[in-house]
Amino acid sequence: MRVHPLTGLAVAGSTAVITTAAASLPLSLAVVAAALGVSGVTGTLRRLLPAAAAVLVPLAMSLLMVHGLAFPEGSTVLAAWGPARITSEGLAFAAERASLLSAVVLVLLAWSFTVSIPDLVAVLSSRGVRGRLGFVAASTLTLLPAIADRAVRIRQAQESRGLVVRRGLLHKVAAFRLQAVPLVLSLVDDAGTRAAALEARGFSSTGPRTNYRVVPDPAGQRLLRAVLVLAAAAAVAARLWPAGTGG
Rank of each mutant, 00 (worst) to 15 (best):
A79T: 07
A35G: 07
A157M: 03
P26K: 02
I147E: 02
G202S: 06
G134W: 08
A53G: 14
L45G: 13
P26S: 01
V214S: 05
F176V: 04
S139R: 04
V188I: 15
V107K: 01
K172T: 01
Y212S: 10
V11M: 09
P182K: 01
E89V: 10
L124A: 01
V129R: 01
T19E: 10
L141F: 12
L45C: 09
G247C: 05
A138S: 14
G37L: 00
W111I: 02
W241P: 00
A148M: 09
S75Y: 01
M65F: 13
L124V: 01
L69F: 15
G37E: 00
A10I: 02
A137Y: 04
R47Q: 15
R209T: 09
R85V: 13
A35T: 06
V32Y: 00
A200F: 06
R153G: 13
G90E: 13
A52I: 07
V11I: 12
K172M: 03
P26V: 04
D189M: 03
L109R: 00
G246H: 02
A180P: 02
A180Y: 11
A238I: 11
A22T: 05
A191F: 03
A175R: 06
P118M: 09
L27T: 04
T7A: 05
A70H: 06
A243V: 14
F113W: 05
A180T: 12
A195L: 12
G192E: 06
A95L: 14
G192M: 03
A195E: 09
V164E: 14
N211Y: 07
L100F: 04
F71C: 14
L141E: 13
L230D: 02
A53D: 10
A110H: 04
L185Y: 03
M65T: 10
S112E: 12
V11N: 04
H4P: 11
F203N: 03
L63G: 11
P26D: 02
H4V: 15
R166E: 07
L27F: 02
L224H: 08
L198P: 00
L183G: 10
R85M: 13
L144T: 13
E73F: 09
A175V: 07
V129N: 01
A70S: 11
I86R: 14
T206C: 10
L183E: 09
F203D: 08
M1N: 06
V17E: 07
L240A: 11
L144M: 11
A21F: 15
S116A: 08
V77T: 10
T140P: 09
A80T: 13
A191W: 04
R85D: 08
R161H: 09
G192W: 04
S99K: 04
A195Q: 06
W81L: 04
V236C: 11
G68Y: 15
V215G: 03
V107C: 04
K172V: 02
L9Q: 06
P50N: 11
V136K: 06
S39K: 00
G131E: 08
L144E: 07
L141Q: 06
